[in-house]
Design a protein around this nucleic acid. Structure first.
Lengths: 349, 349
DNA sequence: ATGAAAGCGCTAACAA
DNA sequence: TTGTTAGCGCTTTCAT
């Protein structure tokens, strides 16, 4: 349908190589450059990336594998990453594996067949769903939000433990001694980290440390609401609660409203993610925020550097010899947005 | 790196065509089939889709263009569509244009260059960002959630007007006469439709129809909260409110809680989308639901049928002569999930 | 700086 | 059924 380089060559009377050179930023005589540009315009020529990909063995396409697309935190990262990659000429193929390791394997395999140049992933399962295959083929893999010990690749992490620890310490500093936590699923990496942060803060401060103060939700709105209720039932005298993801924060707040508990007079609350929700809450919620844009940016750039850097063409053998390539692990700091949901107990507000 | 068909041919002593035939479901002698399969296994052969795409001029890739990825309604549809398409062997390239017509154009152009086989889009702008180019090239475009008069393609819509009308009529039937609406931005197609539904219901019933009863939010949580406040201020005697998207529903509910308004005793509420939120609300919220999975399914299937159907190879000329191809417009019914947020005024509860 | 020609991995005539 | 061959549109030596 569309015009090809051949057409441009014919039209301009130049050789194929010259056109190719022009297209790839090579040196072309001024006179010819003009002719070529004219022909391109007239013939509506557009490079066929597919053919180019076949030849160069690079598709200029990045695969993205995530647990859930309909989760604001993930969606925000993806949106941003896609934007950056596209501005560098890379297309993205997104695969939502619905937190299912089986589907995750399929997705990775699918992307491998599609010959994507690299991968950005937020792993779901515990064992490698096929990332090694990419690495062995010299294709970069960047892991987000989570690390896997048996896959040596770049990682962009968030200091989840530190974030939780910091949040809980703020509560402690404000004079709270009986602090509940709505934790996430045990099999989720970040959930474990956040819980560890809570425990660290609690233990270091020597305040009440009771198992009944930690209730596990499943990262959903309903789960957060149920957890809040159980937490309150088991600990009527609890003065503060830390909720460890967005959906559960929404659920917990709804439950708090329903129980008629006043925030922060009767209960202090620190939530997670989503500043929009925090701002709309009354009183405005204090929350831990994750640097989604920064995560995406780091991930995309790490990938692009590996992709375009001079060490791009790496021998599969050589990597095996090395045992591991130079990989980077970036741990980003979380933020904290102060609201009015934490009551200061030990001195006047 | 990977083995090619040639390698398989050499290994088995067969010709290239036989291998190709096997790969594409052709008839191959049992004996050879086994040999081929063995060779494929041993050599870890995998079809190079890029090469195949070059030859067949089909990339087995679908482009998706949406206004916002971090919007649950869109994300749910995309997730589902991606899943279906992938199960049919199609990869999806998703472009988030952030509700910006300019970016939308870029995205469509980008996907065109990438030679995607078809498009699923939820248009943002008012003028064609380049869909015609696809249609002229014989590539199907399926529009979701919205129609554009100057682009003749398949459309999967939701009966927004009917949904709003139905919701408001439920309130009227329950005896409410002063019903507020939190409407969406004026330049959003679905927002206008929902507003029209409200107006229709109100007018037909001859109840109070005051401009101050419609307040426009911007489809965000904060916008919903602000709108709720204004609505209440302007109409202290309003007994019911209809909120026309999910984010604003969250915001409105928060504001209602903050103002200490009891639902449904003092105010009846009908929200939109997201059943999770509705369920976790206390009292459980009555909401209009959109059939996201069904939308995705219809869109994906419509596309696949066009793609694989016999009328696939359509002449550009012929289409122009026809003026328009056979296009389908499907309008899906919305659902309604009954909660406990609507008070019945005219008789006992 | 430019041209000629080979070939990336596959499909699809056409022959056998 | 199977093999031979000619491209798909591009990049990339290697000459010129």
């Amino acid at each position: 349908m569309g015009a090809t380089m051949k057409d441009i060559a014919k039209r301009t009377g130049l050789g194929l190589a010259t056109i190719s050179s022009y297209l790839n930023g090579g040196n072309v005589r001024e006179k010819n450059r003009i002719k070529i540009e004219e022909a391109i315009r007239e013939l509506h020529f557009e490079v066929n990336e597919v053919a180019r990909g076949l030849k160069t063995n690079r598709t200029k396409t990045i695969g993205i594998v995530i647990p859930e697309l309909n989760n604001i935190f993930f969606a925000e990262i993806i949106t941003e990453a896609e934007d950056i990659l596209r501005s560098h000429g890379y297309a993205t193929m997104i695969c939502d594996c619905r937190s299912d390791p089986e589907r995750e394997k399929e997705a990775v395999d699918f992307l491998y067949h599609r010959r994507v140049d690299g991968l950005i992933v937020m792993p779901t399962g515990t064992s490698d769903p096929g990332f090694q295959k990419f690495l062995r083929a010299g294709k970069p893999v960047v892991m987000i939000d989570r690390k896997m010990r048996d896959v040596a690749c770049d990682c962009i992490l968030v200091d989840n433990e530190g974030a939780a620890e910091d949040a809980v310490k703020r509560l402690i500093q404000a004079g709270h001694a009986k602090i509940g936590m709505i934790a996430g699923p045990e099999d989720v990496y970040t959930a474990r980290e956040r819980q560890r942060g809570y425990q660290k803060a609690v233990q270091e401060s020597g305040i009440v440390c009771d198992d009944s103060l930690i209730v596990r939700g499943n990262y959903t709105i309903a789960g957060g609401a149920a957890a809040m209720r159980r937490l309150r039932e088991a600990n009527p005298d609890m003065t503060a609660v830390f909720i460890s993801n967005y959906e559960m924060t929404v659920g917990a707040i709804m439950e708090i409203n329903d129980l008629g508990i006043r925030v922060p007079e009767e209960l202090s609350v620190i939530g997670f993610d989503n500043i929009d929700f925090a701002k709309a809450s009354v009183p405005r919620l204090s929350i831990v925020t994750q640097p989604t844009a920064k995560i995406a940016q780091e991930a995309a750039e790490t990938l692009i550097i590996k992709l375009e850097g001079k060490d791009r063409i790496v021998d599969a053998e050589q990597q095996d010899v090395d045992g591991e390539r130079t990989t980077v692990t970036v741990t980003l700091k979380t933020g904290f947005v102060e609201g009015r949901s934490v009551r200061v107990l030990n001195n006047k507000v």
